[in-house]
Amino acid sequence: MALLEVKDLTTHFHTQDGVVKAVNGISYEVNEGETLAIVGESGCGKSVGVLSIMRLIPQPPGDIVRGQVLFEGQDLLKVPEHDLRGIRGNRISMIFQDPMTSLNPVLTVGKQVGEALEVHQGLSTHEARAKTVSLLQMVGIPEASGRLDDYPHQFSGGMRQRAMIAMALSCDPQLLIADEPTTALDVTIQAQIIELVKRLRDDLGMAVIWITHDLGIVAGLADRVIVMYAGYIIESSPVKELYANPRHPYTVGLLRSVPRLDAVRAQRLIPIEGLPPDLIGLPDVCPFAPRCAHVMDKCWSANPQLRSVGSGHQVACWVDINSDGSHGL
């Protein structure tokens, strides 16, 4: 049994302008110790998708319309609030994009990192403090014991994200959800944070869902990749297979827009033309059709379902393209 099984998850927002179809029936699994990357342009529903898992969507305006989120067989969308709290921060943890705004400015870092220990493990304030020091050391914060009483604004961006990681890992979760944890950081810090999470993942044996809009960092990190577009999963594949043999025109486009260090000659980066569709009043046709180079009549009349195109490799596209991007119909 998979650790996490998401089935037909659908989350909408009821806004003044209409219904925002942020996540539209996504299904995937995460096995124990596995790392899943979720990739896609900004606004395609990555965050809403994972926030829905822990019911952290503001409701209203958010509404989890359908679906199941089975964590060790238990449907998190149905469990009582009290049981869900026992899972949040304890067995499933999250770290977020902006370490600047994700930490409370008026509480000390030590207090915030140690809080989950008090809640879930029943540690006293004193015991939590002691454990917090070792957590901060674990994530590489120098002179950790002297920094417990610092406030977030006294930490640099990278250090703040390390503190967030310490907070998330404090109760040894089975699943860490990292929602673009490096997007707000500069490149060298970004690499350090990725290395840190990789090391901790291997040490602690936890599963990771890593969200990013940058396919470039996925290769060395993830076992599987899900590509999202307009709230749909449009391709899902083991990571090597995806790079070697992308089957959705959008994935191909994403890969073309990633700079490759191992390229024989300097390749030109080709951004995908056009913009993602408005998620309000999204018609039930292929959402990528307006930007797709391979578009056919059928794409405008029906939305393709995911179908298997290889071992563990699924794609939602009417057109069958080869890895070089040409027609293989």
């Binding site: 943890s93 705004t101 809640v119």
Partner: peptide, 27 residues
């Protein structure tokens, strides 16, 4: 209550009362 750090507090598994009293009220 719409701030990111309130979401962090909820993601930690705090009760709604602790979220409000400890994380939101002072701000």
């Amino acid at each position: 209550i719409r701030e990111d750090y309130i979401r962090t507090a909820r993601a930690k598994g705090l009760r709604e009362r602790a979220v409000v009293v400890r994380h939101a009220l002072k701000n």
